[in-house]
Design a protein around this nucleic acid. Sequence first.
DNA 1: GACGATAAGGAACCGTTGGGTCCTTACATG
DNA 2: CATGTAAGGACCCAACGGTTCCTTATCGTC
Lengths: 195, 195
Amino acid sequence: MDQTRRRRGSTLEEAIVEAAWDELREAGYAKATMNNIARRAGTSKHVLYRRWKNQPELFLAALKRFAATADVPDTGDVRDDLVALLGRIRQVFDLLPGDLISGLITDSRNDAVLFDEVRTYVMGEGVHDVTRVILRRAADRGQIEPGLPAARILRLPIDLLRNEYLMSRGPLPAETVTEIIDDIVMPLLRPAARR
Amino acid sequence: MDQTRRRRGSTLEEAIVEAAWDELREAGYAKATMNNIARRAGTSKHVLYRRWKNQPELFLAALKRFAATADVPDTGDVRDDLVALLGRIRQVFDLLPGDLISGLITDSRNDAVLFDEVRTYVMGEGVHDVTRVILRRAADRGQIEPGLPAARILRLPIDLLRNEYLMSRGPLPAETVTEIIDDIVMPLLRPAARR
DNA sequence: GACGATAAGGAACCGTTGGGTCCTTACATG
DNA sequence: CATGTAAGGACCCAACGGTTCCTTATCGTC
């Protein structure tokens, strides 16, 4: 940009990641190109490939940088906490290029290391930590059975929302969140309760 | 193949779809090329593009042709029926090129018509009809509450299995099926029952 | 303050791929 | 047997990911 000022290190790196994100937002995963990203960042492909060994790797970096993890809601009620959590994730999904997640999953499938990174970030432990905190609090309050539920139940809320997101085009309706929580998750958390 | 015999119509079409499937199986979604498919089928790209307007369209045709829908298990018990159903689907998943489904989802995202076709086939009504029959029978036998459960619960078994498949590389372990059914689905079907 | 290693800028290049054109020739139909 | 349709096949094109090479600015070190 500034003709005679040559950026280096993390300054340059951030500019590139930001450019990648802009390109992803505007063109989508499928049509985003390394050339465009380089041009946007005011640099050359050379520099991109020095830092990331291929396109998906850079795209993942961009995703990591811009889709921050949500903090833990604390309303005093499990159900409301879960609704709030999924609500926020739904909003994040809305900001994502529609084909980013599925594209990343597809393209990282022949690279075990990258796939695991994608997996960890998009659907791995980190994401479910928040749910774990919510459920532990609920157990402490006596709203659900003591102790944590089975791993699969813990993952359920986010798995179901992500599933819904991957299987649809365009933004998710708000009811999706409440349906998932009220029809599926809550009945599993209150074992022999109402209804 | 046969030098002087020129195939036409459905004969040729089937040969192409079969070639596409072979190519998909051997190269995977990401690396399968139209050129290779044409060569395998002993024809030219010209002929492919006369029938399918682009690559994903042909790939979807190949998927439709080779991944037949399972028939309805009938063991006399809901739980066993569901386990059998998911078990079969799991086997089908094993035969699929690992990146086919997610690739199709990614690439069809900018074509509403195609996406809907993928959606209908991969995750649409047709797939859940089998579950519906199983549950209706169970309700008739009095094993679960009368009437069909909420749409979301009905879709749950297959949604969860597909989710597991999309989010992992390599074949799914058999326990996945029983865990999904026993930890999640069954407790939701027997409302105020055991545990 | 001078110097050398490092890395940025920039352009050109390569191989592959999806998609398309054009011409020749086989075949099914009337 | 004549004719329209479509298969076969070669060739072309633009775009893209990835690579290479050369020039030049910047940073750390002496």
